[in-house]
Amino acid sequence: MDRILFGDNQFFGVNHMSEEKARAQSMKFKDTAAIMKVIDVAYSEGIKTFMCTTHDRIGEVTDIVRDNPDRYNNFTFYPGMPYAHKYANAVGELGIMGTLKKFAPGSIISTVIRGAMAGITQDAYELMKMLVDAEMQRFQGTRTPVVFLQNVVTDLLLGFNMREMFRAFHDYVQQKYEAEAGFFSMNMPMLVDVLHGEGIENPIVCSNINKIGFRMCGGIEKYIDTLKTKQFRPIAMSVYASGAIPPEEAIKWVCELPKLEAIVFGASSRRNIVGTRDLVEKYWRFDN
C-alpha cells in the first residue's frame, strides 16, 4: 500500500468545516476535466492511489484512466462503496423497498418482496453481492486492489451487530475481484474488535485520526490504545480535521503514532498536494 493516498471529498462538495467552501469546490469541479487536472497533478507528484467514492462522476474518471493505459500505467483505485447520498436521497423519494428495487433490480428483490422469506440470510448476502457488483461496474478494467465499505454502511452494520456481513463482504471482494476488503468507520476501536471476532485478522480500517480527536468515537485515547495493541492496517483520514490543525503539526502528530499504513488526504492545488506529500515524507517513520 502506498503511504499517501489521494481522496476525493474535495471534488464533490464535501467539506466538514464549511458549506460555503464545499459549494465553491463543487462549482470548481463541475467538469470532470477539472477533476482530472488535479488528479494528474497528484499523479505526477508521485501519488498513485486514488481513494474514491462510487459517485456517478467517478465513472468518468475510471473511463479516462482505462482508455489511457500508457499514461496511467501505475494508477490504482481504492473504491469506497456505496456513495451513500445516492441511496439516502432515493430512500427519501422511493422508500426503502423502492430504493432496493431501483439499485438492485432482478429476481432477488422481487422474491423478497413477494414474501419468500425462507432464505432471508441467503437473500441478504445475495443482495450485498448485487450491490457490490453494481458499484464495481464502472471500475472494470482498472486496478482495484482494495475495495472499501463506506462508513455509513460499516457503522450501520456495526450498530445492528450484523457481524457476519463484514466477513461476507470481505470474502466476496476477495473471491470476485481478487481484492482485499477495507472498512471506513467512525468507530474504529469497536470495529477492529468485531472484525477480529469474525476472523479477519489483519483488517484494513480507514478512520479519522487527528490530533484534536475530531470524530474519533470512543475517544482519542481508545484510538491510540487500539493502534498500539491491536493487529490491523490503519489508514488515517481527516488528519487535518478539515483544516482545524496546522499542516505540519497535524502530520507530525499522526506520523508519531504506531502502526500507520497510509494517510489519505484531499487537496485541490499543486501547492497543497506537494505540501502534504513533503510533510509526510519528512515525518514518516513506518517501514513498509
Binding site: H16, M17, S18, V152, D155, L156, G159, M186, N187, M190, I212, G213, F214, R215, M216, C217, G218, G219, A241, S242, A244
Partner: peptide, 16 residues
C-alpha cells in the same frame, strides 16, 4: 468551527 464545538460521542452514525 464544529471541530471546536462538538463533543465526541460513544458511537457515531451519520452525525453526532
Amino acid at each position: 468551527y464544529i471541530t471546536d464545538l462538538q463533543k465526541p460521542v460513544w458511537f457515531y452514525m451519520r452525525g453526532e
